[in-house]
C-alpha cells in the first residue's frame, strides 16, 4: 500500500481504537529502565545496549499480535511496503510518531528510519563520563522491537542505530537490513 494510504490507516487506528496513556509516564519508565541497567552493569554500555535490544525483542514478539489485531493489515507485498507500514502505521499506533523512510539501497533490502522526535528520550542528557556519549544507544529497545515483530512475520532483520541526537548527531537514524525471509520448514518426513 502506498505511503499515504498507510498514513491514513495509522491515523485512523490511532484515533479510534487505541487507549492513550500519559507520555511522561512512558518517558520516565523507559528512563528508569535505562538508568537502572547502567547502574547494574556498572558502566558497561555495550552490555546495556545488548540488554535493551533483548528486552525489545521480547516485547516485539508479543506486540505484533496486538498490532495485527488492531489494524487488520494483510500481508505486505514487498519489503518497501513493510517499511512504510512500520513507519506510518506501527510507530503511529504505539508512539504517535511517524519516522521517515529513507536511504534505500539499490537491492531494496536496507532502509533508514529518520526520527524527528523520540518520546522515549525527552529531557534526557547522557552522563558525561566520556564513554556514554560514544557507546550507549539510548533507544536501543526500539531496534529489538523491530527485530522481534518482523521475526514473527517470517522476516529476519538486523536493526541498529546509526546516529542519535542524544549523542550530538544531527538526526536520530535507525538502519534496518533484511537478512533473509524465513520460509516455513516442513517437519521432517512430510515432503
Amino acid at each position: 500500500m502506498s505511503a499515504t494510504k498507510a498514513a491514513r490507516v495509522g491515523e485512523d487506528v490511532w484515533k479510534t481504537r487505541i487507549d492513550k496513556v500519559n507520555a511522561e509516564l512512558v518517558t520516565l519508565t523507559y528512563g528508569s529502565i535505562v538508568a537502572q541497567l547502567c547502574r547494574d552493569f556498572e558502566g558497561d554500555y555495550l552490555e546495556v545496549n545488548k540488554q535493551l535490544e533483548k528486552m525489545g525483542y521480547n516485547i516485539g514478539l508479543r506486540l505484533i499480535e496486538d498490532f495485527l489485531a488492531k489494524t487488520n493489515m494483510g500481508k505486505c507485498a514487498n519489503f518497501r511496503e513493510t517499511a512504510e507500514t512500520i513507519a506510518k502505521v506501527g510507530f503511529k499506533v504505539f508512539l504517535n510518531i511517524t519516522p521517515t523512510v529513507a536511504n534505500w539501497t539499490t537491492d531494496n533490502k536496507q532502509f533508514s528510519l529518520i526520527f524527528e522526535e523520540n518520546p522515549l528520550a525527552d529531557f534526557v542528557e547522557l552522563p558525561d563520563d566520556g564513554r556514554a556519549q560514544n557507546e550507549l544507544w539510548y533507544s536501543n529497545m526500539l531496534c529489538g522491537v523491530l527485530r522481534g515483530t518482523l521475526e514473527m512475520v517470517q522476516m529476519q532483520v538486523d536493526a541498529h542505530f546509526a546516529s542519535d541526537i542524544l549523542r550530538g548527531n544531527e538526526v536520530t537514524e535507525m538502519r534496518v537490513t533484511l537478512v533473509r525471509i524465513i520460509d516455513d520448514e516442513l517437519p521432517p518426513g512430510e515432503d
Binding site: 511522561e24 520516565l28 525527552d122 529531557f123 534526557v124
Partner: peptide, 9 residues
C-alpha cells in the same frame, strides 16, 4: 524540574 526528568540525574 526538566533536569529531574533526566533518568541519569
Amino acid at each position: 524540574t526538566k533536569t529531574l526528568m533526566n533518568p541519569f540525574y
